[in-house]
Amino acid sequence: MIGLLLDVATTAAILFVVAAGLLITFGVLKIINFAHGGFLTVGGYAALVVTQAGGSPWLAAPAAFVAGVVLGAAVERVIVRPLYSRPLDAILATWGLGIVIVQLITLAFGRGTNFVPSPVSGAVAAFGTDYSAWRLIMLVVAVLLAAALAALLQGTRLGLEARAVIMNEELAQGLGIDSTRVRFVTFALGAGLAAFAGALITPLLSVDPLMGVPWLLNAFMLVLVSGTSLASLGLASLLLGGAQVVISTYGNPVLGALSIVVLAAVLLRIRPAGFARG
């Protein structure tokens, strides 16, 4: 039972970390970034490069974050900015970008599967059971990330401006806020978080050019049901991720793999605002 609860909590934590970048991009830019899976993959390979170059596995995630931010900044300027007025085209263009990223990575690293060493290994005793140390660390990371993002949004000028742009962009502009800049910073941050998440999941999964694809779909559905709220994302990750764990454990792993997308789709049909207020 404890094991199952830990599975639910850590699965929710991983989903939250993976989807957080997509959520803040969607919240501020109103654009679903389908290159999120690509950015995730970039993070995984950043971790691979760092560790293969002899860097500490602890450095992998921060390095991935930096790589993601730089990549995201470039992408925003060249691809996303011209498409603000055409959100559907932005989805398509970022999808194309995802393809390009996958192919570039394949050209550089090959199609093979790679493994990144984990900063910690094995299981530790926790709550009276032995449990994967890295999954527990992911739980801590998710809580810290949620706290950091909340502090950024609630406590800083940039966060205040971002919230203002989310709520009413025109009013924000009228108060002198440069919403183009807010979008730029947000997109870069969202890409950075995607890469950060990609590096963090490498100790659990292998690194290959398509590693981002399954995550992209789950993150996409979680964001759709969460709207623009971090708290809703936390709740959605816990409920839908929990459903996935329970269905996979007691039911059928195939159904488990489907549970997030199907439950989210059903929820959106019944309640288009999902877990968000409204």
Binding site: A164, N168, L171, Q173, L175, D178
Partner: peptide, 20 residues
């Protein structure tokens, strides 16, 4: 753009949806 105009010490109070 509007934010540049606002930066010239212009304050604007719109009629609709004027507060967050």
């Amino acid at each position: 753009p509007p934010h540049r105009r606002a930066a010239r010490a212009v304050a604007y109070g719109p009629q609709d949806r004027a507060i967050f």
